[in-house]
Structures are given as C-alpha cells and as structure tokens.
C-alpha cells in the first residue's frame, strides 16, 4: 500500500493543486485513463466542500487529502475539521445536511450540489461526520500492470 498525503490551507486557489496531484497519483496507480476526469472532478468537489466548510467556520487548519493505492483500488479521503454539530448551527441558512452544515453562498446550495456530483460519478462513495470533522471517502478500481514475460 502506498500513500501520498496533501495538506493545504483552506483557500479556493489550492483546490486546483489538489485536483492535479490526485489525477497524477491516480494515473500512476493504474486508474483507467477514461476515469481520470471523474477522479479530478470528484476530488475537486470534495475539496471545494471542505474549503467552504473551513471558511464558513473560520478555521485556519488545513484540509487533508490522502491518496492511497493498494492492489485493486485507488482511494481518496478528503477530511475537514468541522465537527459534527448534531443540530443546524446557523438557523435560517439553507443547504444544511443532517448535523453537518454545507457551505453557503448567495447562489445555489453548492456544497450539496458537490455531493450530488460525487454521488453521480463515484460508485464507492461514503460521507462520514464526527466530533473531529467530516470525511469523504471514495475509491476507484485500478487496472494491474501487465505481467512481464
């Protein structure tokens, strides 16, 4: 099992860097070329959501992205440090999922739309929320390199 970990300050300009790194590591891990666009989009959505949550809560701690390769799959974990609140922390704001407020903007509920995009793209996808923050986990199958003969 090999891991690449990336930590970045919750700034929108760093989300692109996370996308590029994730796509590069996924390609190396053997994720099919046709799926790399999906990896790029899904990790971008997860990171945008985490950045939005950190900014909404005024957190200066970084967002953490783990890219893990094992024999059969390539996994990405995007972790934020916004604790589960159990109840909406900002009454009257829209776009709040159970116990975990989504980023709010003056446009559509972008945090929720981000999750909708990920769930439409990735079959193996899970969102968890806990006392230390939330995590989005997703994985893609890898194609093993051809055996040398």
């Amino acid at each position: 099992m090999a891991t690449v970990e990336l930590r970045f300050t919750a700034l929108p300009e760093h989300v692109r860097t996370a996308r590029l790194v994730a796509a590069a590591v996924a390609r190396r891990a053997g994720v099919d070329e046709s799926v790399l666009d999906e990896v790029r989009l899904a990790v971008g959505e997860a990171c945008s959501r985490a950045v939005g949550l950190h900014r909404l809560h005024g957190l200066e701690s970084p967002v953490r992205v783990s890219l893990t390769e094992d024999e059969k799959k390539f996994s990405i974990e995007v972790a934020d440090e916004v604790p589960e609140t159990g109840s909406p922390s900002a009454p009257g704001r829209h776009g709040e999922a159970a116990g975990h407020p989504a980023p709010v903007s003056d446009e559509a509920g972008e945090g929720d739309m981000g999750l909708a995009v990920i769930s439409g793209l990735v079959d193996d996808f899970e969102v968890t929320a806990g006392g230390t923050g939330g995590t989005i986990r997703m994985s893609w199958p890898t194609v093993p390199p051809p055996l040398a003969t």
Partner: peptide, 13 residues
C-alpha cells in the same frame, strides 16, 4: 476545460 458544481451554481444563479 473543467467545470465543477461551483460553476453550475453560478450558471443557475
């Protein structure tokens, strides 16, 4: 080259 949900939100807006 790339569009995500934030972009979709802006178009919907």
């Amino acid at each position: 080259d790339f569009l995500d949900s934030t972009g979709l939100g802006v178009l919907v807006g």
